[in-house]
Simulated assay, not measured.
Amino acid sequence: MAGLNVSIAFVFLVVGVCQVLRRISKWLLSPGAYGCLARELAGSLQLCMSCLELRMLVDIGPWGGGFGLDVVLTLLFLLFVVHGVSFDGASANPTVSLQEFLLHESDLAGTAAKLLAQGAGTGLGWALTRLYWSWELTHFHLIQNLIASECSSSIHTSLHHAAFVEGTCSFFFHLVLCKLQQSPLMYRVPVLAATVTFLTYTAGPFTGAFFNPALATASTFHCSGSSFWDYVQVYWLGPLAGMLAALLLYQGNIPRLFQKNLLYSQKSKYRIPKAKAAAQVDGDKPCRKKKEEKSNSEPRA
């Protein structure tokens, strides 16, 4: 279990360093630059390094460390709880940033800056994690270095099925995210962490269950077994289609593209119950009757 403890310590070290980066950049930069660049860079760096380490445990742990999938899923749940608390509003996910753009919550320049920061953060996270693995602090890292040059694709099913799996994971993730958007942090974070854990457990054997284009690019695009276009279809277009479907189902439209609601009829925001409306009509009858009697009793010229 020594190797597992080292990996857990590494994850907490990464979270601590990224938290320091967030505090320093928040103090030095303007709110706009912090929100679009520094916060997303730190969040993507933290997510990439911790998920790569956890992925290494998934691949090697069952036969190299003697622990099962239950340990990894528990770590994954706790990891995303920590991410949700420490991210300070960052998404570290390109499809979430695009969703904010489609909902008019972010402009084009801000969205482009977020996407660039997410790409830079995951790229830097991949390089730093590979450097950390090269130190071979545990037998896990020794094995990882031996098999790193021969890594295989995470797509273990047909191409269309893999794209469908990633799209479905993205669909449910974004649907839950939309539903909990205004919920308190203490409810939103564990529910999202449980959703990610469940989707990973269900779809992991087929595609690795990334449903995050930036994370998938850093984790598996360099592996052999699938072409670049195959990876694009599964890990970019699949999650994007899932996000659009979830947004359309939840909103009834995509505000940035068209205003008309395609799925739900527009109803009045303020509705009067039928019983109350009937009572108001009955209550108005005596007043109307008095007015009519008064008008009839007035002498005519």
Score class of each variant (00 low, 15 high):
S265I: 14
K260N: 07
N261S: 15
A246H: 00
L263W: 06
Q251I: 00
L247M: 14
I272M: 06
L249T: 10
L247I: 10
F258P: 00
Y264F: 15
I254W: 09
A246M: 00
Y264I: 12
G252N: 11
R271I: 06
L247D: 13
R271S: 07
A246F: 01
F258K: 06
S268Q: 09
R256Y: 02
K274G: 00
P255I: 05
L248T: 07
L262T: 03
N253K: 09
Y270Q: 05
L248E: 05
N253T: 15
S268T: 08
Y264N: 13
K260H: 10
Y270F: 07
Y250C: 00
S268D: 12
Q259T: 12
Q266K: 15
F258W: 13
K267W: 15
L263P: 03
G252S: 13
K267H: 14
L244A: 14
Q266P: 08
N261E: 09
K267F: 14
A246G: 07
N261P: 02
P255H: 03
L263M: 08
Y250L: 01
K269Y: 02
P255F: 06
R256M: 12
A246Q: 02
R271E: 13
G252L: 05
I254T: 06
L257F: 13
K274Q: 02
K269T: 09
K267V: 15
Q266V: 15
L262E: 04
K274W: 01
L262S: 04
K260M: 01
K274P: 01
R256W: 02
L263E: 08
N261I: 01
K269L: 07
L263D: 03
S265Q: 14
S265Y: 08
P255Q: 08
Q266S: 15
Y270S: 02
L247H: 13
G252E: 10
L244V: 14
I272Y: 02
A246T: 01
N253V: 04
L247K: 13
I272H: 02
N261Y: 01
A246S: 10
N253E: 08
K274L: 06
K260V: 10
Y270A: 03
L249S: 04
Q259Y: 08
P255Y: 01
L263F: 14
Y250I: 00
F258C: 05
L244E: 08
Q251R: 10
Q266D: 15
Y264L: 13
S268A: 11
K267M: 15
L249F: 02
L263S: 04
P273R: 15
I272V: 12
L249H: 06
A245P: 03
L244S: 11
L244H: 05
L248V: 06
Y264P: 06
L247T: 13
S265H: 11
I272D: 00
Q266T: 15
K269M: 06
I272Q: 07
P255S: 07
N261G: 02
Q266N: 13
L262K: 01
S265F: 12
L263K: 07
P273G: 14
L247Q: 11
L248C: 09
Y264D: 00
Y264K: 13
F258R: 10
P255A: 06
L248F: 10
S268V: 01
Q259H: 09
K269R: 07
K269F: 03
L247A: 12
P255V: 03
